[in-house]
């Protein structure tokens, strides 16, 4: 219970960093922290008490896995989410570098000429 709450607190801290900070790199860091908290929450939801990893070893019966393993479905989804996070981070950092090159600053309030 308290672990769920702590991961949601991490989520809120990432969102705060995303909204209230002026520096673009700080905003990127906020997105990264938010993503970590969501991954952690999904894995926490799928945990079973005393659970083993969902990998069948030699000499292990199939019913042993079925009775005592943790949930494999959130693990498969989080595995894709981590790699997507890496790609999106690279895209964000490249946009930040181009913005720095054009405006010579990372500060969001000084980038005034940004228009849609």
């Amino acid at each position: 219970m308290i672990l769920y709450f702590l991961s949601l607190a991490l989520f809120v801290m990432g969102l705060y960093c995303l909204v209230a900070k002026k520096n673009i790199i700080k905003k990127v860091i906020g997105i990264v922290i938010t993503e970590y908290s969501i991954n952690m929450f999904l894995i926490l939801v799928g945990y079973r008490d005393g659970g083993i990893a969902p990998v069948l070893m030699k000499g292990m019966d199939n019913s042993e896995i079925a009775a005592g393993s943790v949930d494999p479905l959130p693990q498969a989804l989080v595995l894709t989410s981590i790699v997507i996070g890496l790609g999106v981070l690279a895209l964000m950092v490249s946009i930040c570098l181009r913005l720095y090159e054009k405006y010579k600053t990372f500060d969001m309030s000084e980038i005034k000429r940004l228009r849609g």
Binding site: I25, I43, L44, A53, A90, V93
Partner: peptide, 24 residues
Amino acid sequence: LGAPDIAITQVVVEILILVILIRA
């Protein structure tokens, strides 16, 4: 939490995230 696949991926991706952010 019993997720060795994700632990491996998270370690390696974390190194790359550090490389990219330090580059920035």
